[in-house]
Write a protein that binds this DNA or RNA. Structure first.
Length: 278
DNA sequence: AGCTAGGTTGTCGCCTAATG
DNA sequence: CATTAGGCGACAACCTAGCT
């Protein structure tokens, strides 16, 4: 619920913008029409729902989309294109839905993607996996993971489209020439350099890049420096680490046994990445 | 109850591409 | 060749779900 400091009446102004502009203070919340609903699949397979809005100014910020959350939450809100919703800025300017002001009469909601994705899917590229696969690439390139500077979502999409990656580490096999022909001489060379630097990163970074379901603290505490060490742990051994409960332990073990995951591990071994070679 | 990870948003600055 | 426009990546802040 809203922390309603302002009188409700302020939201229900006829004529909208003009009247509000005359108000002594800039409006903290405004009504906008939902123009569409967008679904996205993240690296863990979670589906996020976003409402696309007719642009409105909120405290000098131009707002044209707002996060709804999970599919469950979206169902609770019951929002469809054509509806009018009240939006405000949370804290330093993240848009937030306050309430549905008005629901369209003829409503048709788009169908969300099936919830068949999870943290064990889409290490390998398939047509259905496109979204999660790209999300994995974007994430593994981030600073805290492999620190691949200069490439983001658009870049990964481009590379994947041109060279048809088999799995999330296929980019390691690209040549300098290939990168330069896609991104230009200068940027291509920089990227090639970044890719090569990543090869020398410590084992931990690469395990994180693979998406191992452990918290940072747990991984640090384990002090495991090789794939073999990870595999030698049994459930009891995992449970002894901080932040490890029954579920988490099960998850890691399942992850370590996963066919695609072990295939990736072997592939990294062939690439002579630290900690993966037997 | 508390914490972490993962997900989202708009803005800013850099680099590339295009135009005169 | 210089200048402008646009796209992309990086960033900080916030929210929720899930697990301990």
């Amino acid at each position: 619920m809203r922390t309603g400091k302002e009188p409700q009446a302020r939201y229900w102004l006829p004529g909208q913008g003009d009247w509000l502009a005359a108000w002594k203070y800039p409006p903290v919340a405004r009504v906008s029409e939902v123009t569409g609903i967008q679904f996205s699949v993240g690296k863990s397979g979670k589906i996020a729902v976003v409402a696309l809005l007719a642009p409105v100014m909120l405290d000098d910020k131009r707002v044209q989309r707002v996060n709804i959350g999970s599919v469950r939450r979206w169902n609770e809100w019951d929002i469809a294109p054509g509806d009018q919703i009240l939006v405000s800025l949370a804290g330093q300017g993240i848009p937030r839905i306050d309430e549905v002001v008005w629901r369209s009469t003829q409503r048709s909601k788009p169908v969300p993607p099936e919830g068949r994705f999870n943290s064990l899917t889409c290490f390998y590229a398939t047509a259905e996996c496109q979204e999660q696969f790209v999300a994995r690439l974007v994430w593994l390139g981030a600073n805290e993971v492999l620190g691949l500077e200069g490439i983001g979502e658009a870049g990964w999409r481009e590379l994947h489209q041109v060279y048809r990656f088999e799995h999330i580490f296929s980019w390691l096999g690209l040549t300098q020439e290939q990168l330069q022909s896609t991104f230009g001489i200068s940027k291509g060379e920089k990227l090639w350099h970044q890719f090569n630097l990543s090869r020398d990163l410590p084992f931990t970074r690469w395990v994180i890049a693979m998406g191992i379901p452990l918290t940072q603290a747990t991984l640090n505490a384990s002090r495991d420096g090789s794939w073999q060490q990870l595999q030698e742990r049994d459930e009891q051994s995992w449970r002894q680490l901080p932040f490890m409960g029954e579920q988490r332990a099960r998850q890691v073990i399942q992850w370590l046994e996963d066919r695609e995951v072990t295939a990736l591990s072997n592939w990294l071994a062939a690439q002579r990445i630290a900690g993966f070679m037997p």
